[in-house]
């Protein structure tokens, strides 16, 4: 019996190896490269990136779009959070990274030993809204002003039936339920954007400034979850939860209607110099695709992100062109 299991396993492996690409998924239906022939340029390999969870949805689409031109590159993206992405590009663990927050001076200094004497280049690739989301009975939308939102996340307002919320939503039947705040537990650029919004709204309510890690003094007033996907999952599981996430990934949760939406610019990080020729060529073509018209339109279509304007695109093109590869003089 054991012999036959072994031989059938060998046979399976043989079949797989011989059949080659029949294990990959056929994505020709997406027609992402309709009029141009494949470019390929001999680029092949496994390219690893990591970072922000906010861009995840667009990155998934970009991977497909990019593969339509370069089918032999396998892009692996690990959505571990902006902090993790920055750490990875500095240490050389990732070839490219995504972050909602720019590198600090200290981080740029550290990156110079791995990424070339100009350190890390940061290109805006994804401009999107941060929505305040909630899960409360079947309510699809609530009106809350900035101060109320800040008060809720600061732990000052603890029940959905609070008079301040009722005042702004007179026609909605608000139940007497505890507000469960769900926040990002990782080192998140979205936290940065949000906390800076809180600080600007009311510093007396939100006393903890702009920070990537949720302040530990009020940590026990809220639940933590890993990544954009994590807060969405936990918010969906709970009743009376309120959280925040990139607008592309909110799913069916209720969304707070705000006068001025919280905008977030998310960046792609790359080294200014790559010793590995293939890695350098990959990054240049990858970033080039992302900021191109087709890349930005694709992102807009799947994630509702804002397309980069002309000046942003031109600056990005300049930055990408400045990447040096291999033994070229830096």
């Amino acid at each position: 019996m054991k012999n036959s299991v072994f031989t059938s396993l060998c046979f399976l492996c043989l079949v797989l190896v011989l059949s080659g690409c029949s294990v990959d998924n056929d994505v020709s239906q997406f027609k992402l490269n309709p009029n141009q022939s494949n470019i390929d340029l001999g680029l092949r390999g496994q390219m690893a990136g990591s970072g922000a969870t906010s861009q995840k949805n667009s990155i998934d689409a970009w991977k497909l779009g990019y593969n339509a031109y370069y089918p032999n590159i396998s892009v692996a993206y690990d959505p571990k959070g902006s902090g993790g992405g920055r750490k990875d590009i500095i240490s050389g663990a990732s070839i490219f990274a995504a972050s909602d927050k720019l590198l600090s001076d200290e981080e740029i200094k550290l990156s110079k030993s791995v990424c070339g004497s100009n350190g890390v280049i940061q290109i805006p690739t994804y401009i999107s809204k941060i929505e305040i989301i909630f899960n409360l009975d079947n309510i699809k939308s609530l009106s809350l002003d900035n101060k109320t939102i800040t008060a809720i996340f600061s732990g000052k307002i603890t029940n959905w039936s609070d008079s301040l919320i009722k005042l702004q939503n007179p026609q909605i039947n608000l139940p007497n339920k505890l507000i469960t705040v769900v926040r990002r537990s990782d080192d998140s650029g979205t936290n940065d954007t949000l906390t800076s919004f809180f600080s600007k709204t009311d510093e007396s309510l939100w006393q903890w400034g702009e920070t990537s890690s949720w302040p530990s003094s009020i940590a026990s007033l809220s639940q933590g979850a890993q990544g954009t996907a994590g807060v969405v999952i936990v918010s969906s599981l709970g009743d009376g939860t309120i959280s925040y996430a990139d607008s592309a990934q909110v799913g069916t949760l209720g969304v707070v209607a705000m006068d001025n939406p919280i905008m977030q610019i998310s960046y792609m990080l790359a080294c200014s110099h790559y010793n590995d020729i293939i890695a350098g060529q990959f990054v240049k073509s990858w970033l080039g695709y992302i900021i191109s018209k087709s890349g930005q339109e694709l992102s807009h279509n799947v994630s509702n992100s804002m397309v980069l304007n002309d000046s942003q695109t031109n600056q990005a093109k300049k930055d990408i062109d400045s990447i040096t590869i291999g033994k070229e003089n830096v």
Binding site: N176, L178, T180, L237, G238, D239, G240, T241
Partner: peptide, 15 residues
């Protein structure tokens, strides 16, 4: 968690 939520609903964090 959802099961316990039924009992702890309004008392502690949900879920």
């Amino acid at each position: 968690c959802p099961f316990l939520n039924v009992f702890t609903g309004n008392l502690i964090s949900s879920p």
